[in-house]
Amino acid sequence: MVINGVELELDLLDADMAEKFESECQIVKARVTDKKAYEGKSNPDAIRYQCEVVNDFFDSIFGYGTSEKVFEGRHHIGKSMEAFATVVSEANKSGEKIKEISREYMPGDATPNRAARRKHKKGRGNMSAYQGTRP
């Protein structure tokens, strides 16, 4: 994906990257919604704070220095939030790709639950039907 002219790669099909992405999104949410972080701040300082939260996200996900390349040292809340939204949108596309792959390799009634698959395969799906004939 390209954000503000900078090519970035986000591979959320990789479990480690997906885990890091989810963790960083939770950190962004917690920091942006923390009312104490805004106490005593002017509107421009609050904007800077939110931009720094997004900068930290970009540096953590894409590597240190990425935010400087993407935002060129500016604290523009519109550009920061738009860039963050672009990354989240790309993540949603990855989620759809995962669902597509799952449907391809587990068609029909297949279930990812191993215990349920084994139970069904061994014919133990409904034991009550067999209880009357057992000694």
Score class of each variant (00 low, 15 high):
89 S>M: 04
31 R>S: 11
56 D>W: 10
27 I>R: 15
35 K>W: 09
67 S>M: 05
68 E>C: 00
103 R>M: 07
96 E>Y: 06
96 E>P: 00
65 G>F: 09
59 D>P: 00
108 G>E: 13
57 F>Q: 01
66 T>V: 00
98 I>L: 11
89 S>D: 12
93 K>F: 03
29 K>L: 14
39 E>R: 13
51 C>R: 04
80 S>I: 00
107 P>K: 05
71 F>G: 00
64 Y>D: 13
60 S>Q: 10
77 I>M: 10
55 N>E: 11
72 E>V: 06
103 R>Q: 11
41 K>R: 15
106 M>L: 14
74 R>K: 15
42 S>Y: 13
53 V>Q: 09
67 S>H: 05
56 D>A: 12
96 E>H: 06
78 G>F: 11
47 I>Y: 11
36 K>L: 14
59 D>M: 05
40 G>L: 01
61 I>W: 10
75 H>R: 12
90 E>V: 00
88 V>H: 05
43 N>I: 15
102 S>Q: 12
32 V>P: 02
69 K>E: 12
37 A>K: 13
79 K>V: 03
85 A>E: 11
33 T>F: 14
104 E>N: 07
108 G>S: 10
101 I>T: 06
70 V>A: 03
30 A>G: 13
99 K>H: 03
46 A>H: 07
41 K>P: 06
78 G>L: 05
90 E>L: 02
77 I>W: 08
28 V>H: 10
34 D>T: 06
106 M>T: 05
95 G>F: 06
40 G>V: 00
87 V>L: 04
42 S>F: 14
62 F>N: 03
61 I>Q: 07
86 T>W: 01
75 H>A: 05
53 V>E: 08
41 K>A: 04
69 K>V: 01
83 A>E: 03
100 E>R: 05
29 K>H: 14
49 Y>N: 02
105 Y>L: 10
44 P>K: 12
76 H>D: 15
73 G>N: 04
81 M>D: 03
84 F>L: 12
98 I>E: 08
58 F>S: 00
87 V>Y: 05
63 G>D: 09
39 E>S: 09
80 S>V: 01
82 E>H: 06
81 M>F: 15
64 Y>W: 10
108 G>Y: 11
29 K>M: 14
62 F>C: 03
91 A>E: 02
79 K>M: 08
65 G>C: 03
57 F>D: 01
83 A>L: 01
92 N>K: 12
37 A>D: 07
69 K>P: 01
69 K>T: 00
72 E>G: 00
91 A>C: 02
52 E>V: 02
107 P>F: 08
38 Y>M: 09
95 G>N: 12
